[in-house]
Write a protein that binds this DNA or RNA. Structure first.
Lengths: 123, 123
DNA sequence: GGCATTGTTTAGCATCGGCTTGACTATCTG
DNA sequence: CAGATAGTCAAGCCGATGCTAAACAATGCC
């Protein structure tokens, strides 16, 4: 995988609770940095640093006009993480489905983990 | 949001590259801890710790039979992260769509920085 | 011009997190 | 039984990370 570094940056960015809240706020619409900072009890500098991380990860884009920097969500950034997850999950779930089919083929017994009895019959 | 702590744990778990590789390996099928550890150049203890984090986050379930602990992916854990992302992203994208419609309605003035020309007509 | 607003940058601090080491338990195998 | 295998636990090292303070720059407003 070549986009490994991108996946890395995105998940690293989303690991931080305050950064996720910033994303949450931005999902409602674009915002200046100080507007973003308003509900938090931290320095503006801290918010700026978080925004930088989000921006380097591709989750957020921003542009400065005058002295105010306006930040907006970039769906493509989030898509990177979303795809990584859904690929792994669907891979695993397909596997589970195939397994279920195999079990159902000739064994109507309960497939729950407690005392699973493996009666395999290969024709 | 009450499941905030769960979201926190899941994203924290996925932030670590080696843990994501473990998830990747597990998406191919269940595995013992030492099988999981095999391709990595770290101690078994390190892998155990990673597995614990993944398990506390709900991404992985495991059961010990005899002296071997078998780990398997739990799709529900990954779903927590997947839903968080897709909710934020789709919220934002819906907003973009509405904006596009509004712009197309009667005001050709440009709201995006790079000369985007949206000529859409709403029937 | 003078002052407030809005960020940006850097250095330092404190905490967190990943990893190792080493001691230990429990289970299999000959 | 002895020894090997598979994992667990606790302590500690050390680099990464979030936050602050402080100095700075650029823009807007009177």
């Amino acid at each position: 995988m070549l986009n490994n570094a991108a996946v890395d940056r995105v998940f690293h960015a989303l690991a931080e609770p305050m950064r996720r809240e910033l994303v949450e706020r931005l999902s409602a619409g674009p915002m200046s940095v100080s507007d973003l900072a308003q509900p938090f009890r931290v320095t503006l500098a801290a918010i700026v640093q978080h925004v930088q991380v989000l921006e380097e990860s591709g989750i957020v884009r921003s542009e400065k006009v005058g002295r105010v920097r306006t930040c907006r969500l970039d769906p493509d950034g989030l898509k990177v993480a979303e795809r990584w997850i859904s690929e792994r999950r669907s891979l695993w779930e397909r596997r589970l489905d195939r397994l279920g089919e195999l079990l159902a083929e000739d064994d109507p017994s309960d497939s729950s983990p407690t005392k699973s009895k493996k009666k395999r019959k290969k024709p």
